[in-house]
Design a protein around this nucleic acid. Structure first.
Length: 264
DNA sequence: ATCGGTACCTGCACGC
DNA sequence: TGCGTGCAGGTACCGA
């Protein structure tokens, strides 16, 4: 479900809600949603005060005064709720000195981990798409012999893009999802860098994309779905040339693109 | 390095 | 109504 813009939207709301709060109780009713032992993790969390909420790619990082870190990945269907009662898919509950936060995740692809430092798994991800420079991005593309779509989805190359925003960025840049990274001209690579920045920035401003179930901490859906140009629009006319948008599969992922506007 | 396949899960839409 | 199928915003691991 959530890609960078959704996670960033959640991070901002969570930061406001959680900064300075203390954990009174924690519960992990679903062992598989947690890396580590549920009882031990819960015990270590009690009494911890939240300093800040950060983000690396699609990972949320709840930082405590003690230096401990609660890393949350929402997977495909994970969501965080500020308040309310637990439901059938509640996988974690943090009871605070004011309010509570619940982690719901029907498909259980999401994970929570309490750690003392940034886990290697997260530390070794690629750069933030909104922080990397065009020059660096172009140089790194050049070094890869791979199709663009799977490369952009690879979190070790760039952290935060998922299926939706990859397709949207490639469309905006006029580049075919199967185009080979190393063969892109510097000008087209620069255009792709700009397209990624634009689509992510606009999506964050709109509060993310809701296809079926994404909601933020307050339960509000995103607003960017109405501005998607190709994702989920197979058969509809391309907003630029009116040719029908096509759906195909690239790297085992459903992929939407305009066969006329997007060239290899 | 890169690719394809599989696995992990549940829920929903769809066709019959 | 019920059942089978395919699909879904993500990641990890395996062998080729």
């Amino acid at each position: 479900m959530p890609e960078l813009p959704e996670v960033e939207t959640i991070r901002r709301l969570l930061a406001r809600r959680l900064a300075g709060r203390r954990i009174l109780r924690a519960e992990f009713p679903e062992r598989r949603s947690l890396r580590g032992d549920p009882a031990k993790t819960a015990a270590r969390l009690v009494g911890q005060t939240i300093r800040a909420v950060g983000r690396r790619g699609k990972h949320l990082l709840i930082e405590f005064d003690s230096g401990l870190l609660l890393a949350v990945h929402l997977g495909m269907t994970g969501s965080l709720r500020g308040g309310g009662e637990r439901g059938p898919h509640t996988r974690a509950v943090l009871e605070l000195d004011r309010g509570r936060v619940l982690f719901d995740d029907p498909r259980m692809f999401g994970r929570i981990e309490l750690c003392e430092a940034l886990p290697a798994r997260i530390a070794r991800l690629g750069p933030e798409p909104l922080e990397t420079t065009a020059a660096d991005f172009i140089a790194r593309l050049r070094a890869r012999r791979r199709m663009l779509k799977p490369l952009l989805l690879d979190q070790a190359f760039l952290r935060g893009l998922g299926n939706i925003y990859t397709d949207e960025a490639l469309f905006r840049a006029g580049i075919h999802p199967r185009a080979l990274a190393a063969r892109l001209s510097p000008e087209r690579a620069r255009k792709l860098h700009g397209a990624i920045r634009e689509v992510l920035t606009a999506a964050i401003a709109a509060g993310g994309t809701t296809i079926s179930d994404y909601v933020d901490v307050e339960g509000n859906p995103g607003g960017f779905q109405v501005r998607l140009r190709v994702y989920g629009r197979a058969g509809e006319p391309c907003p630029r040339c009116r040719a029908p948008i096509r759906r195909t599969v690239v790297g085992q992922r459903g992929t939407y693109y305009c066969p006329k506007c997007q060239k290899r």
